[in-house]
């Protein structure tokens, strides 16, 4: 018998001919208290991202270009090859930049697929404004634009917005480790600086835009 058949045969023997299957209780919260894009969620997302040492800027759609230009001023910025989110002078990932090229840029600028306010999580799915995974991994700074309608409250809402067949990356703050005495320290192998730009309608932008030293 080959390994596959033998393992499957062992499993059948172990579980018996008619194993009992009990229904899964799913009375945990799926939807949050707030609808996607609600001002409360934008505030919560910003708070939770900051709590895990991300830098957060708030702006309106009309201010986005200016905000991105200000945030990335003086940096060499890489962007996905066909992204609508960009800044003047950005280097497109076309043809694909080498790992060494990516290591040499100051920042990468992308959008996202969705974000979860409860946990301060940004999800990337390789869409046109996010690019391939290496692009958002190798550069030391990641500037990520999150639009209000992409922000949901709960983890179940987040996962249900995503297509698992696409390569997904869930990002909650910059790279970190708890490996030394179980204390959290930010900044290891992934981007050491995560800059989230949360775009909401006028009146939801909270604090003023200012340039962070990253």
């Amino acid at each position: 018998m080959n390994a596959r058949d033998e393992i499957l045969s062992r499993i059948r023997t172990a579980t018996g001919p008619s194993p009992v299957i009990r229904p899964v209780p799913r009375d945990y919260a799926v939807a949050g208290a707030h609808a996607p894009g609600a001002p409360e969620l934008l505030d919560l997302l910003a708070e939770r991202l900051r709590d895990y040492r991300a830098t957060v800027h708030r702006c309106t759609p009309g201010d986005l270009d200016a905000t991105l230009a200000e945030v990335t001023r003086g940096w060499r910025v890489a962007v996905p090859d066909s992204s609508a989110i960009t800044v003047p002078g950005a280097v497109a990932d076309r043809p694909a930049l080498s790992h060494a090229d990516l290591d040499g840029v100051d920042a990468v600028l992308t959008g996202c697929a969705a974000a979860c306010a409860d946990t301060g999580t940004i999800a990337l799915d390789g869409g046109a404004d996010q690019g391939r995974r290496a692009l958002t991994l190798v550069p030391d700074r990641h500037v990520c634009v999150i639009h209000a309608d992409q922000v949901v409250q709960t983890v179940p809402e987040l996962l249900r917005r995503l297509d698992p067949r696409r390569p997904l990356t869930f990002i909650s703050g910059p790279s970190a480790t708890s490996d030394i005495e179980l204390d959290r320290v930010e900044g290891v192998h992934g981007p050491r600086t995560l800059i989230a730009v949360v775009v909401g309608p006028a009146g939801t932008t909270g604090n003023n835009v200012h340039r962070e030293q990253g």
Binding site: T119, T121, R132, R133, P167, L168, S172, P174, R184
Partner: peptide
Amino acid sequence: LPRSSTGERMNPYTSTWTGVTPGDG
């Protein structure tokens, strides 16, 4: 998992992949 493990709301990175994605990974 993250709350039980490192006591975080969410761990910094979770990656998922499905087979092979052309041009990515």
